[in-house]
Design a protein around this nucleic acid. Structure first.
Lengths: 235, 235
DNA sequence: ATCAATCCTTGACGCCGGTCAAATCTCCGC
DNA sequence: GCGGAGATTTGACCGGCGTCAAGGATTGAT
């Protein structure tokens, strides 16, 4: 592994929200035992049901954590970016992976043995607190996933666009410009539907004057309507 | 508060899985600051969106933690029995309640200020570990809720009956006898549907020879079929 | 420029499940 | 027993959305 890559690993570990109160020495210890792998887009990083003896920290790229249904469609629990933990819950609970993880882009991840998590907690008690906070937030995020699933497809799309407007929205003369961030077919899967239905949902929001479709960018004309649709209050 | 009730409170606190490694002295300290209330069935114990400054431990009864959709239907995240924590995640994350909680039966609950949770963690570091384990398990439970929602109604019903067979199933000469544990209308709500659809789902399982309906008791004839339907592999 | 491959859109159709309405059933209190 | 309120079941209907199939549109390579 190159020195540059080793630096990236340390940076990613340093940024991981599971233990942001840890000392630099502790991070170094983690970095020393990390196994770094780089894989192309689409690679399976973890499979639901497999025994979980390691967990990972994303160094670069974006991974999608999801459940695969029997009919082949999937439900996204979360997407993880650089510095984010992979399969940490399984490591903590000590069972099997509760979800699948795929590389949504080319990905490099630092894998760590689950024992190193426990050693870290023992060595630095403050880490337990940050870990509890992270887990509590993750529970809250999952309740949000559940609420999303209860919406119809236009509602889920609106919720996604609303959140993305806050995250990467760009004010222009015409209105708020938001890129989808991924091909429409991938977004469809991520919203738990299929491209055909997503296409119709976009068409509906367009017909209602809420947005304009410019290829893979959206021009949001009525952010309030997005927020309303995305929270389940249709009219 | 009577002495008997005070004993119940201590017993419930002692049994709470958030801190089962805590010392008896720590439990006594919690009991000393607990505010105990008893409420009839149907009472609202917490409302989604309200600021969370206290959390509770169930002393007696059963509570339902759920999200209320705009159309009035609800989705159950979990049900909590005696010894179980209420709204602990909100207390840990420090925000607002992410869900509603109702008393499914007459309920008595010991309310605690969220600070006492942090004091407990500070005083007894081992508690952090049990709390982390509990939170990790809760995350896994929520992924299971998501998977359940992805099933059709007969699938959700089958999953419920299968789990309930394991929990309270009673072998008889005719087959495995399982009580529903609640009125059908309540079960319908708990499965995220309405009584009419639940009734049809039960009828379908009956027609397929998987079970017999005896009022509020089910006679399970094919547990394997329940497990299969409940995991999403229809045929 | 052209061709092919991929992605996206649109139409037709059927299933699931929610709503409304009406018929039964059940369990109490009298 | 009897009456009645609530719970459960059944039927009719309809909207949402997934599937299948058939076009467009876009992009990259030759």
């Amino acid at each position: 592994m190159s020195d540059a890559q080793r630096d990236d690993v340390r940076t990613a570990l340093r940024a991981c929200r599971l233990w942001h109160t840890a000392s630099d020495e502790a991070i170094d210890r983690l970095a020393a035992v990390a196994t770094v792998t780089s894989v192309p887009r689409g690679t399976t990083l973890a499979t639901e049901g497999d025994p979980a003896d390691t967990f990972g920290v994303m160094v670069a790229g974006r991974a999608r954590v999801f459940h695969l249904q029997a009919d082949g469609r999937s439900i996204t629990y979360e997407t993880v970016d650089s510095g984010g933990p992979l399969a940490a819950v399984a490591a903590l609970a000590g069972g099997r992976y509760p979800a699948n993880i795929d590389a949504a882009t080319p990905v490099t991840v630092a894998w760590l043995p689950r024992e190193s998590l426990f050693e870290l907690m023992a060595a630095e008690p403050s880490v337990s607190r940050t870990m509890i906070a992270d887990l509590a937030n993750r529970v809250i995020n999952l309740t949000s996933v559940v609420q999303t699933l209860a919406l119809d497809v236009p509602g889920r799309l609106a919720r996604y666009l609303f959140q993305r407007s806050l995250a990467v929205g760009e004010a222009t003369a015409e209105g708020l410009r938001v890129s989808l961030g991924m091909p429409k077919s991938e977004l469809a899967a991520s919203l738990g539907t299929v491209p055909e239905t997503l296409s119709r949902a976009l068409g509906r929001l367009r017909d209602e004057g809420i947005l304009e479709v410019r290829g893979n960018d959206m021009l949001i004309l009525d952010v309030g309507a997005l927020a309303r649709l995305g929270s389940g209050y249709e009219e």
